[in-house]
């Protein structure tokens, strides 16, 4: 390779490497300071700020959603499957909000409750038609029923897995 071209190539590569190191260090430094969200366990352990807003993340617990029929008030429980945190919110919930969905609530502690000012729902990056989702649920339910049957009657036979998608 021609020496001037070689020099230019080396300069460019050094420049990109320097930029990568600079950005990498910045990102690494930020990662230690910025926490996007706290789980209910962390909140109960006192890791979250007590008197300033923060984000609470977790899954909406089964049978925990109660809506006030006369207003937009709603309360539910966010769980990380270790500890629960009751959440109160007034406003319109996102379409993806439902039981078992990951949600991120912004707000602050109000006694034992978390008073949310914003609720965001996370998408699980799975796309399938409703029929398939229903079929999977049915297969899982059937599998569970079968398992229960086998436990009482005969030793377990191989059950049909829910790998319908």
């Amino acid at each position: 390779m021609h020496p001037t071209r070689k020099r230019r190539l080396i300069i460019v590569l050094l420049m990109v490497a320097a930029a990568a190191v600079a950005i990498g260090l910045t990102v690494f430094a930020l990662q230690k300071n910025v926490t996007y969200l706290f789980s209910p366990t962390e909140v109960l352990n006192g890791k979250a700020p007590a008197h300033s807003p923060f984000r609470l993340g977790g899954v909406v617990k089964e049978h925990s959603i109660h809506r006030d029929p006369s207003s937009l008030k709603v309360d539910f429980v966010v769980t990380d499957r270790f500890h629960d945190m009751p959440v109160q919110y007034t406003g319109i919930l996102p379409d993806l909000f439902r039981v078992g969905q990951s949600v991120i609530a912004t707000g602050q502690m109000d006694g034992k409750h978390f008073k949310a000012t914003e609720i965001l729902a996370k998408h699980d990056s799975t796309y399938m038609p409703k029929e398939v989702a229903d079929a999977i649920k049915k297969a899982e339910a059937a599998g569970r029923a079968k398992n229960a049957e086998h436990k009482t009657a005969a030793p377990a036979a191989p059950t049909q897995g829910g790998d319908a998608h």
Binding site: Y127, K130, E131, A133
Partner: peptide
């Protein structure tokens, strides 16, 4: 394409 099970 069919509608999605979560998002319609």
């Amino acid at each position: 394409a069919p509608a999605d099970y979560q998002q319609g």
